[in-house]
Design a protein around this nucleic acid. Sequence first.
DNA 1: GGAATTATAGAACGCACATACCACAACGCC
DNA 2: GGCGTTGTGGTATGTGCGTTCTATAATTCC
Lengths: 220, 220
Amino acid sequence: MARPREFDEGVVLDAAVQCFWAQGFETTSIRDLMEKTGLTAASLYNAWGDKRAIYLTALDRYVENSIGARIRRCEALPPREALHAFFAEILRRSLTDREHKGCLVVNSALEMAPRDPDIRRVIAGVLVRIETFFRSCAEAGQQDGTITRATPAKAQAQHLLGVLMGVRVLARVRPEKALLQGVVGTALASLDAQANGGAEASPDSAALRASASSGGARRA
Amino acid sequence: MARPREFDEGVVLDAAVQCFWAQGFETTSIRDLMEKTGLTAASLYNAWGDKRAIYLTALDRYVENSIGARIRRCEALPPREALHAFFAEILRRSLTDREHKGCLVVNSALEMAPRDPDIRRVIAGVLVRIETFFRSCAEAGQQDGTITRATPAKAQAQHLLGVLMGVRVLARVRPEKALLQGVVGTALASLDAQANGGAEASPDSAALRASASSGGARRA
DNA sequence: GGAATTATAGAACGCACATACCACAACGCC
DNA sequence: GGCGTTGTGGTATGTGCGTTCTATAATTCC
């Protein structure tokens, strides 16, 4: 019972995500948001209240669309393939990220989380969600024999979470294929069932690791 | 041949490091720097030119005092112990970091490096330096038999660099002892000589990994 | 078809920021 | 002991920021 919105909230939030993702919170001005969303300041303030609220909403949207969707895609695969597919996608994204935006969650983890408890809770929740996904994969992989039992699934998941954060940081400063492949390849190789010290157990982990030193191509 | 400085450059730069470390570049104002350094704006500008130059100088100082010094300390140890000591120190720092400042280099890698080519070069250089240190350790460890040859030293170093970045990010959002120990312990365990899939090869890697799940204490 | 309500447009506001300026102070040199 | 030079303190300057205000437009309800 009043004048209706002239804009689509989703489209506007996607534009806001692009702003905050590329430039961070502080460096993005309301005027930047006006330009990229096509809205006036009054509309932005009327719809969300203030800049921080826009950021929070955009962050939620990013989490669901980028991270939640990726986890759901990978959950459909067998455990070991799920982890490999997850990191393959991270690598592909990182290496085709021409603006070096990285991951909004990681960016927010450093810029906003330390000084904003609400945002920190959101980010911590996302990290737990990713860790839980990793852990489920690790446990299932240990069950079906594709992932080593030499290390507890919990520690494997924590390790992968750390590696994920690390790749996202490195990619923004040294977006070199060989480097990122070396990081991820070694981490995934450490999950391989059978002995790692003896004969090569997993063909594609070995290939990924080897290509890290030579800059070779990666399979889809 | 003129009026001498009334302040000690090192002391002032240390104060500037604290500001930028705790708050980042954008969130630190010249007034913050004035307050923490005790200098007036004119003195700051007279000595360094502008805010960015202060940041660059402070960053250099941090790199030498925090990172360079740590590498030099660890280089004195046998290779495998050097890596363990390096990460033990990172863990200790991260867990006693009450302000959750993290590492200035990692913070700068996300806030400044993507939009400032000069800073990016500095940060990339630091990362190469750390990676080179890791690689030297890995190669020496493979020589003396304390580190596995199953993975190339280069890939091991890249992996450790990624894990280091990851720990620094995680520590700012989820500074939980068990989590960080899980990340680092699993990474270090993957370096152990002899088969990882079979009997436990390295007592303290195994201990570190186990304590990650229970929150047990860490040896010095 | 008013009345009430909400959206939009554009200008305006107050503030904090990085930086520049100006007057003066403290030194080395001749 | 004046002079040139450099450091310092306080204040001004202009800009860009987040946000608010005012006026008007587009709806629903009765």
